[in-house]
């Protein structure tokens, strides 16, 4: 692997309204320092992609943002959301996760019916009126472009759906909570190209109402759907800029090598 100077970085200023920002974020797995000084601002109602080679820490970074790294890793630094540091130990993590939803790499619906999968979180949050539940069910499935495929089978097991449908169900399940921010950890990497393009279409329409942060291995996917791109290497954020700039005029050498395929 080529040696790069990891301390140099180019991080663009976001002038738009911010959905979320990190300030000097550090992550440690035991003694292993996994993320170094991450300072990123995520714009509202935009899709931000995190790219980088395997093991560079992009999933680790993403998981910090809704506190899924609690008890897994030590996370220092600040994560600012609505002018609140949600990385503080006093924060109610369950509330954080209601506002910052997450979709995982592998589709992970519960072994329940489609309907129960969606209303699971709503019921946990204390929403019990039938009309409200039905409305959110329909809305979220429509937003995730799944409604037409499942509207006659809402009581069928979610495990009977195809992988792509399951992943869209997981997206629907997250947005049923009406979060502000949606974190996606390689949501399409386990799916075939057709399901992938459906997920990408879904994300494009979702960005009207949600700020989306997506981790992806797939450079074409990042360039197709995202507005901003951050490139991570060995736990350092090397470059953060608009997607067009990252892919056509990378400022940093590692980024250039990575997006042009000369990496490693």
């Amino acid at each position: 692997m080529k040696e790069y100077n990891l301390t140099d970085s180019y991080i663009t200023d976001i002038t738009e309204k911010k959905a979320l920002s990190t300030d000097n974020l550090q992550v440690y797995y035991g003694d292993n320092h996994a993320i170094f000084d991450a300072n990123l601002n995520f714009p509202r109602y935009k899709i931000t992609a995190l790219i980088g080679a395997s093991g560079c820490g992009k999933s680790t970074f993403l998981r910090c943002l809704n506190r899924m790294n609690d008890k897994v890793a030590r996370v220092d630094g600040e994560i600012m959301y609505r002018n609140t540091d949600i990385n503080s130990s006093k924060i109610n993590v369950y509330e954080v996760r209601k506002h910052i939803g997450m979709v995982f790499q592998r589709p992970n619906p519960f072994a329940k019916s489609i309907k129960e999968n969606i209303i699971f979180a709503l019921k946990n949050a204390g929403i019990n009126q039938k009309d409200e539940l039905e409305e959110r069910l329909e809305q979220s499935l429509k937003s995730a472009a799944l409604w037409d495929e499942v509207k006659d089978n809402l009581n069928k097991s979610a495990l009977a759906l195809s992988g792509g449908q399951q992943q869209r169900l997981c997206i629907a399940r997250s947005i049923a909570m009406k979060p502000d921010i949606l974190l996606l950890d390689e949501p399409a990497s386990a799916l075939d190209p057709i399901s992938t393009s459906k997920i990408e279409e879904t994300l494009q329409t979702l960005k009207k109402d949600y700020s989306i942060i997506i981790v992806t291995h797939n450079l074409q996917q990042a360039s197709r759907i995202s507005d901003y791109t951050a490139f991570l290497h060995l736990g350092h954020i090397i470059e953060y800029n608009s997607t067009v700039n990252v892919f056509t005029h990378p400022k940093m050498r590692p980024t250039e090598d990575y997006v042009s395929g000369n990496f490693g």
């Binding site: 996760r97 939803g101 519960f110």
Partner: peptide
Amino acid sequence: VPMYYRQASLALGATRWQTIYKVVLRS
């Protein structure tokens, strides 16, 4: 019970008890 059930539930804002009672015990 697969770990990702617990993760999915927690990521949806469910509390630990809700996760255990409604997801882990159920399955």
